[in-house]
Simulated assay, not measured.
Amino acid sequence: MMKKIKTICIIDDDPIFRFGTIKMMETVQLSLNFLVYKNGKDAYDQLLPKLQLNTNLPDAILLDLNMPVMDGWQFLDELVKISMAENIPIYIVSSSVDNRDIKKAKTYKMVNKYIIKPFSIPKIKELIEELENQD
C-alpha cells in the first residue's frame, strides 16, 4: 500500500536551497506541508515536543550537514536519543562529496540516504516515490 506523504521537514541554512526545494516538491506533489528550519537547534527545539507526544511528525527530514548553531551531525546525535525519532526517515542533503561524510552518515540507522546537492525534479520524484513505498 502506498503511504501518503503529507509533511516534509527541511533543515538547511541556505534560503535559496529551501525555496527551490519547496518549489520543486510542490511541482511533484501539490498537497505537501513543510516544516522549515535554518539550523539543527531550531529544528530540534520545535520537533522535540512533537516527538514526545508522537504527533504531527514529518514523513521525512531533509537535513543539511554544514549549518551554524547546530549542524546536521549534532542534530542527529540529539535525535538518536529519542526512540520515536527512529520512525522518521532522514535524508542528508549536502554539497559535501567527502567520502568520510558519506560513510559517517551510514552509521546512523535513521539516515535513509545521502543526497548530494543540487536537488533536481528527478531526484525529488525518486525520493517521494521511495517514501510512499515504505511501510
Rank of each mutant, 00 (worst) to 15 (best):
L57V: 09
L65S: 04
W73L: 04
G40V: 03
M67C: 08
I121T: 14
D101E: 15
Q74C: 05
P49C: 03
S83C: 00
L30K: 14
W73D: 01
D13C: 05
A43I: 04
N33K: 15
T7Y: 10
K106E: 11
N99W: 02
I82M: 09
L63V: 06
I121P: 03
N39P: 03
Y44K: 05
L65Q: 07
D42H: 12
I11Y: 02
G72A: 07
I11C: 03
L51Y: 05
I115T: 06
V36L: 09
A85Y: 05
C9P: 00
N33P: 01
I8R: 05
N66R: 10
T7A: 07
L51E: 04
K113F: 01
I22R: 15
N133L: 09
Q29L: 13
K106M: 08
P58V: 06
V36E: 15
T21V: 12
L35N: 10
K104E: 11
M1C: 08
L35I: 09
G72F: 05
D14A: 10
D101L: 02
I90E: 03
I116G: 01
M24Q: 11
L53A: 13
L57A: 06
V28Y: 00
N112C: 09
E126Y: 08
S31G: 13
L48G: 00
G20I: 07
P49R: 08
Y114G: 04
D135I: 12
K81H: 12
K41H: 05
K3F: 04
M1N: 11
P68S: 11
I124C: 08
D13N: 15
T7D: 08
I92L: 07
Q46I: 02
E126R: 10
I8Q: 04
C9E: 09
G20N: 14
E132P: 00
M1K: 13
K103H: 11
F17L: 10
K123H: 00
K38H: 11
A43T: 04
D59R: 00
T55L: 10
P118L: 06
I8T: 05
G72P: 02
L131K: 04
L48C: 00
K109S: 12
F119I: 14
A85E: 11
L51C: 10
N133P: 01
V97R: 12
N112W: 01
M67F: 06
I61R: 03
N39Q: 02
Q134I: 12
L35Q: 14
P118D: 11
